[in-house]
Each structure stands twice: as structure tokens, then as C-alpha cells.
Amino acid sequence: MQISMMKSRSSLLKRITAGVLATSLVGGAGLAQDEATDPNARSPEIVIVPVGEDGSEAHFVVGDMAWGDVLGILNQLQNQPSEQTIAVAQTLWTSRDVNPPFFLFELARLTAESDPTFAVQAYFLGRSRTMYDAARCLDSSALDVINEASAYAGDAVVQVIANRPELTIEAIEHVIETEGAFASEASPWWACSFGSSAYFAAVNGDTLAGDEWLIVESRWPSVRSRIEANLQNNLTMMRDAVAAATAQ
């Protein structure tokens, strides 16, 4: 596939977030910003987590629901008892417009076997929203978050997409018809903090003003137009591929 393409939360994610903030992964979350001066200012920090017996470490940018924070919440979600799976999936879906789209990939993973149609819809909604968030970052290296985040959906979703092209067509059609790619209320910071500029700001203890990590809002319509064109091109490509395969 060539899809290059926080405000309130549900009670479940509030409880999970509270637990995550007590762990080493998200322990360095930045302080709340002064919204009267710059609501988009961010003071990222680095949390270092051991990842192997050989002493290797992973460095995560955290603060204000940065990349490291969403990974921490994902870890908590995946550690929930199996009997909570349905409740977690329901929460992820009902809160999809107020939480970073990263969690839609976890929703796709959870439902890939039980409801592949829904899983593919969640996947492409998450991917299109991730595209839009990453494309609004000043740091072009943040675009790498698109494939990195999408991979968390897992192999089962990839197999469904590969074997059921009609589901991909339906999912992209739905995103286009509902303009779902642009309905999220979550800050793009979760995606932008994946980039190198946020990392170096965290290493140096710097605060990033809003105009240092996020493109000005007057440019958002042009970004939106590019995402819409990308979705339409992918839809056309998929339709043509299916039509060609059917004609053989």
C-alpha cells in the first residue's frame, strides 16, 4: 500500500494515564504551558528506559502527550486483563476524536480477527489522521511517525489488508466521505515530538514555542488538500487494481 498518507478523555483512559504517569517511562512529563501566552508551547523531556540485558537503552521524548507518553499508555492498555479487551476497544473507539490517532492502530489490532471490516476502518482512519498530524509539523523528520505508528496495528491487520482489498476500498471511501481524517481534536504534538527537533530540544532542556514545531494555521488548508488528494489517488489505485484482477 502507498498510503503516505487532549482535551477530555474517557474514564478508562484517564485511569490508565494516571497509572502511566507513575512509571519510569512517563515520569518526566513536562509542566503544563501558560495558555495565555502560547497554548502550543512545549517543554519536552527525555526519559531513558533500559531495553536489554546488554545495557542498551531507549530514549523517549515525553511531556504533554508526546510520543513517549502515547507509548506508555499503549503499554498499559496491552497489560489490561483479557476480559477487559472489549471495554478497552469500545473506549478507544468512543474517544477516537479526542485522543491521538495512534490508539486507533491498537484498536485495529484488537479487532483484526473478530471484526476485520471494522479493524481496517480503524486502521485507515488512524493512518489518515496520523498523516494530517505529521504533515503539520515543521520538522520533516516527524513524517517517519506515519509508518512507525501504523506498524503497531500488527501483522494480522496487514494480512487482512493484503487479502481483502475490498475492505481497504470501503475504508478509504468512508474516510473521504466523512472527512474523518480532519475530525480529530488531539494536538499534533504526539506526532511532531517523534521528530529530531523535539528530541534535541528535550536533550538541551529547551522550550519550543508553537511556531517552532507546528506550521502556522493558515497553511493547514493546503496540507488538508494534499491529504485529500493522496486519499483519492490511493482509492483510484485500489479500484483499478481490483478491476484489473477481476477482468483476468
Results as ranks from 00 to 15, higher is better:
E173K: 14
L104R: 07
V203I: 07
P44I: 08
A201S: 12
A183G: 08
P165Q: 02
L125N: 08
D211L: 01
R164V: 03
V61L: 01
A18G: 04
L21E: 15
L138H: 02
E148M: 08
V223H: 10
T130K: 05
V242K: 05
V223I: 15
A108L: 05
T130S: 10
S141T: 15
V160P: 05
A198V: 04
P101K: 09
S43P: 01
A245W: 05
F194H: 15
R224S: 10
A108D: 01
G52C: 02
V158Y: 02
L12N: 03
E106F: 03
K14V: 14
V157D: 06
K14Y: 00
V242R: 08
T178W: 00
N163R: 10
S128C: 08
A209H: 09
V70K: 08
G195Y: 11
F194W: 12
L12D: 02
S82Q: 15
F103S: 00
L25Y: 02
R129A: 01
V20F: 08
Q248I: 11
Y132I: 11
Q80A: 12
G210Y: 03
D206N: 12
W93D: 15
A112I: 05
A119I: 09
A36P: 00
A241F: 07
V223L: 06
R129D: 02
P116C: 03
Q90P: 03
Q84K: 14
Q90S: 12
A229D: 11
E83T: 12
N40H: 05
G210D: 00
L12P: 03
L110G: 06
S225R: 12
R136G: 01
N79L: 12
G205M: 09
T207M: 08
Y199R: 09
P188V: 06
T85K: 14
F124V: 03
D211C: 02
N40L: 15
S187N: 08
T91S: 15
E148A: 14
S196V: 13
E170T: 12
P116R: 06
R96S: 13
T117G: 10
M1I: 11
D97C: 01
G154K: 09
S193I: 10
N204K: 10
G19S: 11
V216I: 10
E177R: 11
S8M: 12
Q76D: 14
E177M: 10
L13S: 02
A149Q: 07
L77C: 15
A247Q: 12
R164G: 04
Q121E: 13
T207A: 05
R224F: 09
S150M: 04
R42D: 00
Q159K: 13
T130W: 02
V47Q: 15
D144T: 07
L104N: 03
R9P: 03
T117F: 02
S184F: 05
S150V: 00
I169F: 04
G195K: 06
F182D: 09
G19R: 12
F105K: 09
V98M: 13
S128W: 00
I176S: 03
A89S: 13
G63Q: 03
E185R: 15
E83Q: 11
L167Y: 02
S24H: 06
P221V: 05
S43K: 08
T94N: 11
V145M: 01
D64H: 13
A198W: 11
S82Y: 10
S8I: 13
I169K: 12
R224N: 14
D139G: 01
M6A: 11
G210I: 01
A202L: 04
L71H: 09
L25S: 08
F118E: 04
E179T: 07
E179L: 04
V26E: 12
A134E: 10
T94I: 13
